[in-house]
Computed example of a mutant assay.
Amino acid sequence: MKLVPVLPLAVFVSAAAFGLAQARTAGTRAAATPTQPVLAKVVYVDDGDTLVALLPDHQQLKVRLANIDAPETGHGHCRPGQPHSDQSGRRLAELVKGRQVELRCMDTDRYGRSVCDVVMGSTTANRILVQEGLAWANRGGNGYVRDRAVYELEDRARAAHVGLWQDRSPTPPWVWRHTEWLAPQPGCVRKGDRS
C-alpha cells in the first residue's frame, strides 16, 4: 500500500489565493478562476468595495467586492471623493471588520485584487450595500456583474430613495473616475501630461 502525504488545509487555501493572484496576465482581464470558498478574517476595510482579509495561513488577501461599485473615496485634491463614499466604507466596516467571513472568489482584477462575494449567512455584504443604496450594480464594463440580483436590489433602493439615491442624480463611480479624476483640473498634473 502506497502512502500519500496529507497536506493541511492552509496549504490548499494558500494555493487557491496564489492561483487567484497569478491568474492576471499583463494587459488582459483574467478569466474567471472559481475556487473553493475560503474562510478569512477581515482585518481592514479600505472603502465601500475593497477590504483586506487574513487567510488561515496568515497571508493577507486584498479583496474587491464582486458585482458592485461603491462611491469613490478621495485621494487628495486632484482625485476628490464622491458623496456617500465615507458612509459606504463605514457600512462595509460595520458588516465585516473583525469578523470571520466566507469569501467566494472568482477572478482577479487589473490591480491584483481577488474579486469575491463576501458571504454573510444567506446573503452577501455585496448585496447589502446595493440594497441599502451604498453601492451601484457595477455597470462599468462587460462581465462585471455575475450576481444578477444586484440589478433588482439597486432598482428597489432607487425607488425607496435610500442612501445615495436620496440625491437627485448620483454619478456612478465609473463615470466619476473619468469626469472628476481624468479631466484636467487647476493645479493637478496627470500622468503623461506635458508641462
Rank of each mutant, 00 (worst) to 15 (best):
P37E: 10
Y151E: 14
V175F: 06
F12L: 10
R190G: 13
A70V: 03
L55E: 05
C105E: 03
G19D: 07
P83L: 05
A16W: 01
L92I: 06
E132N: 11
P186Q: 13
V43K: 11
Q185N: 10
A183H: 11
R158A: 14
R91L: 08
F12T: 01
A157T: 02
E132H: 10
S195R: 15
V145I: 15
W174T: 00
L61K: 00
A53F: 02
R110V: 06
G27K: 14
L95M: 08
P5E: 08
V13M: 04
T25R: 14
T171V: 15
G74L: 09
V52N: 05
D109I: 01
S122Q: 15
A135S: 02
G27T: 11
S14E: 14
A26V: 12
F12P: 00
S85E: 13
S114M: 05
K191Q: 13
A137W: 02
L20K: 07
L164Q: 12
D193W: 13
T73Q: 13
T25C: 08
G112K: 01
P5Q: 07
Y144K: 15
Q36Y: 03
R91F: 04
L153D: 02
G81W: 03
A157S: 04
V4E: 11
D167H: 11
L51M: 15
R64K: 13
D109E: 09
R146D: 12
K2A: 13
A40Y: 01
D49V: 02
D109F: 02
A137R: 03
Q22M: 15
G48E: 01
A21E: 15
S169G: 07
T123R: 09
T28W: 01
K41M: 09
P5W: 05
D167N: 13
T124A: 11
R110S: 12
R194Q: 12
L39A: 06
V42S: 07
Y111M: 04
Q185V: 10
D117L: 12
S169V: 10
A17Y: 00
G121Q: 08
L54I: 04
G192M: 10
P71V: 03
A32P: 12
D69W: 01
V162R: 09
L65R: 07
L65N: 07
M106D: 10
V13Q: 03
R127D: 06
K97S: 14
D46F: 13
D47Q: 06
S114K: 02
P184D: 14
P83C: 06
L103D: 04
I68S: 05
L54Y: 00
H84R: 11
N67R: 13
W176V: 04
V4F: 11
V115D: 02
V162H: 09
E152M: 08
A40H: 01
A32Q: 14
A17D: 01
R99L: 07
R156D: 06
P172K: 08
R99V: 03
E102F: 00
A125Y: 00
S122V: 12
L51Q: 08
T108D: 03
R110E: 09
D117T: 07
G76V: 02
R168T: 14
V4A: 10
I128K: 08
Q82W: 07
H58F: 11
A10V: 12
A10H: 08
S169A: 15
A23M: 10
V162A: 08
L129M: 09
W165H: 03
A17E: 04
Q36E: 09
G192C: 10
G48R: 00
E152C: 04
